[in-house]
Each structure stands twice: as C-alpha cells, then as structure tokens.
Simulated assay, not measured.
Amino acid sequence: MNLPVVSTPDHYYINQEAAQYYHINMSKVPRDAVVVKPTDNFWRQNRVVLIPALLVVLALLLVIIAILHNQRRQKAFTTELKAPKPKHLKQWSSMMI
C-alpha cells in the first residue's frame, strides 16, 4: 500500500467561537496558533473603565497612607508635649518668662 506524504501546515488558525461551541480546550491548542475572532474577556471589554478606576483607587490609597502617617506623627508630638518635663528644664522655662 502506497500512502501519500502529507505535510502539516506551518500555522494553525483557530476560530475561538467555534472552539468554544465544540468544547475544545484552548490550552491544548498549539502556542503558535493564530486565534481568529477571539472572544473578549472582562479585561478587554472594560479596560477603558478599569484603568481610570484603578488609578483613582491607587490615589485614594496614597491619600489614606499620608493621612495615617500624619496622624502618627501628630500623636507622637502631642504625647511628647504632654510628657512631664525634667526639673532642670522647668527651671529654665520659668527663667525665660
């Protein structure tokens, strides 16, 4: 029996809609395959809204961190002011008045 030699194609083209319809696992498709009509995922559909939203969230987190840092500094300063002064400092402060 004489079988013809058939070469495999250099590039595979996969229609993602058809692959989903026939329940073909896309992880089994060769990595160099060209996907035709890729279905949009959540990121592709909403990136115009997600990028600015993520930037706003990042900016708000930075503001919160700055506020918390400022509160810690202020608390440390007020506790330092409320701390009892040593005797020799009390004498000097009374002499300056």
Rank of each mutant, 00 (worst) to 15 (best):
M1V: 08
M1I: 13
M1D: 02
N2G: 02
V5I: 06
V6H: 09
V6R: 13
S7A: 07
T8E: 11
T8S: 05
P9R: 04
D10F: 09
H11V: 05
H11T: 14
Y12Q: 07
Y12P: 00
I14N: 00
N15F: 00
N15A: 05
Q16S: 06
E17K: 15
E17V: 02
A18C: 03
A19Y: 01
Q20K: 07
Q20R: 04
I24K: 02
I24W: 01
N25C: 02
M26P: 09
S27V: 02
V29Q: 02
P30R: 06
R31K: 09
R31Y: 05
R31N: 09
D32Y: 12
A33Q: 08
V35Y: 05
P38L: 08
P38W: 03
T39G: 05
D40T: 14
D40Q: 15
N41C: 11
W43K: 11
W43L: 04
Q45G: 13
Q45N: 12
N46G: 06
N46M: 08
V48H: 14
I51S: 00
I51N: 11
I51G: 01
P52S: 13
P52N: 06
A53Q: 13
L54K: 04
V56I: 14
L60D: 08
L61K: 13
L62E: 12
I64D: 10
A66F: 06
I67F: 14
I67Y: 10
N70L: 04
R72Q: 12
R72A: 02
Q74T: 12
K75L: 04
A76K: 07
T79R: 13
L81C: 06
K82Q: 13
P84Q: 09
P86F: 09
Q91G: 04
Q91A: 09
Q91I: 11
W92N: 00
S93A: 06
S94C: 06
M95D: 06
M96V: 13
M96Y: 12
